[in-house]
Write a protein that binds this DNA or RNA. Structure first.
Length: 213
DNA sequence: CCTTTGATGTACT
DNA sequence: GTACATCAAAGGA
């Protein structure tokens, strides 16, 4: 018998810890996205840590802007950014307040509302691909900049919340270099994933792009 | 399986 | 102008 996932919401205190502590602890937790059509639930299988001021790979490295302002606020809130001209990615702000550290949600397994996720991810060839990658995850859950700054710890009528779920045991958590991060930011082994999980995205080292003509 | 390329907002040089 | 916490389509092996 496998114990049923714990539906207790994660508290502010959960996020008010150093990002390198929170990131691996998020694996196996359940993200609940409430849409007008119904709920979609996702079991997290892959994340990356970004540690604000000390981290050249972080959006917060060069200080606050209109885009990243939420990262400089209190922990437990959602930072959503728009990138490559067409994709959204979702992060959870960690503590302490003002440090501007956050966890990028990179991949997960849809455990509820798969039919809703499939409508948003028409190119997915199977359900394992629905949220295999950070932009795919955000697309599957219908997440965009309108949700930037949402409190992920709120329980009543919140469009987003996190439940305790079934944490991945530490001996099944693997870590390695972050995907697609260039320069000095690429040295940190701050990508965490659930060992042997089919929904984890393939690792891609950073590759410089050729100039457009 | 693999590699190449186009899509293009935001931040920065 | 150029890089970027990306993805999907197209074509080759």
């Amino acid at each position: 018998m496998i114990a049923a996932p714990d539906r207790t919401p994660l508290t502010r205190e959960f996020f008010d810890r150093p990002v390198l502590e929170v990131a691996p602890d998020l694996l196996g937790r359940v993200l609940v996205r409430t849409t007008p059509d119904g709920p979609i639930e996702l079991r997290l299988t892959e994340v990356e840590a970004y540690d604000g001021p000390n981290d050249p790979g972080s959006h917060a490295y060069r200080g606050p802007t209109a885009r990243n302002g939420v990262m400089f606020g209190p922990p437990g809130y959602v930072y959503v950014y728009f990138t490559y001209g067409m994709w959204h990615c979702m992060n959870l702000v960690c503590g302490p307040e003002g440090r501007a550290s956050a966890v990028l949600l990179r991949a997960g397994e849809i455990t509820e509302g798969a039919e809703l996720a499939r409508k948003r991810r028409l190119s997915a060839r199977n359900d394992r691909e629905l949220a295999k990658g950070p932009a795919r995850l955000a697309t599957a859950l219908g997440i965009d900049r309108a949700l930037d700054g949402t409190d992920a710890c709120a329980t009543e009528g919140s469009p987003l919340s996190l439940l305790a779920g079934t944490p991945v045991p530490s001996d099944q958590v693997r870590n390695g270099p972050r995907t697609g991060v260039s320069g000095d930011g690429g040295v940190h082994p701050w990508r965490f994933w659930a060992d042997n999980d089919p929904t984890v995205s393939p690792y891609r080292a950073h590759t410089p792009r050729r100039r457009r003509t």
